[in-house]
Design a binder for these strands. Sequence first.
DNA 1: ATTCAAATACCTAATTATAGGTATATGATA
DNA 2: TATCATATACCTATAATTAGGTATTTGAAT
Lengths: 209, 209
Amino acid sequence: MTIKVIIADDHQLFIDGIKSILSKTIDIDTIGEASNGLQVIKLLENDIIPDVILTDIRMPIMDGISLTKIISKNYPQLKVLALSMFDQTIDVIEMLEAGAKGYVTKNVDKSELVSALHTLVKGDYFFSANLPENIQDWFQKENKYVKDTQLTKRETEILHLIVKGRTSLQMAKHLKLSKYTIDTHRKNIHKKLGIKSNTGLVNYALKHL
Amino acid sequence: MTIKVIIADDHQLFIDGIKSILSKTIDIDTIGEASNGLQVIKLLENDIIPDVILTDIRMPIMDGISLTKIISKNYPQLKVLALSMFDQTIDVIEMLEAGAKGYVTKNVDKSELVSALHTLVKGDYFFSANLPENIQDWFQKENKYVKDTQLTKRETEILHLIVKGRTSLQMAKHLKLSKYTIDTHRKNIHKKLGIKSNTGLVNYALKHL
DNA sequence: ATTCAAATACCTAATTATAGGTATATGATA
DNA sequence: TATCATATACCTATAATTAGGTATTTGAAT
């Protein structure tokens, strides 16, 4: 259930920042860190196997692109989430070609990072909402899709009721809908947010709504 | 499940303050307000029946003590929670004699008020921790007891894990305890806080811990 | 020495949540 | 007009929570 993460970046301060964000989050544990791609490979060889590798693109010794190619070949079940500065859009495309499953900018906030990790673990792709247009274009060409984690009106309404402690049956009566419908919305919320439990939803809602 | 409350006070500003606090709380709805005891009786006669009546002691036309006596006689299922200023300890004792089930001072904070309401609904008594000594003495004489909502170490530990989204089974494995033990702690937390659901606990914890 | 809080463990039953589906109707939009 | 997002509804099965008990052990306090 817990998402295990390895962080790779040649700036220790940045690693510490991400670790700090993730340490406060349910279901996400940082199990390793590295200052370049080669160190990530060594962690993997020592059976430190994460669910997601959060990696910078430009690093000394072995960069994120080479790392991602090796991982795509030898550890295909691992998801790579690329981190980049705004000015590295060309590198980002290379990362995606190499097999990265998502991309966030380095000024990512907590909720976005958490969403990204959950999304990747589910097997979907995740991209920052504010990603440069040429990357969007590339993805449309490549027949991929950009996730949006926007809830619909109904879903938002139901999320609020969940936070208030209502059960599916109570919501169904209140909204004059079938319990089945409520549960369907609930499942769609789970899918969109990448959060599978009621307690997680309350956490998310209180922190982000 | 939702706790319905009527607020009675001759100061509208104070009613508004309490309403504002309660409106932000799960499972508590303000269904009526009154500026004196007689207005409360009229609400009850119009089938506006709350679970708890939050009432000032000194009010014009009909004070909280007379109100409480009438309620104790004609609506014994309703709980009366007395509100008072610090300087009205004699009145408070009269309220309790009249049948009030709890007492909070007017500088009550949100968490205390919510605990008080939950506690009364359960059928227990609630008294502000900082209540004057002569009232404590009176209660010891009268063989009542003062609730404390302090969680033990283990309970606090488990509450935190619940907030993190762990299930009973996960916690049992993590702490090397029986699932039965976890569930017992969980039930004791429910009892102490007067909150019966997981989502409610997460709400409580994020707001008060 | 006895009482008491805290922590532990077990049992049963009912309710709720989670997860995997499928399916239909509608209104917007490409 | 054909597709897509949204909202609706149903079905089954398993997991988890909630609620009602009882009971034992241990360490601290009266």
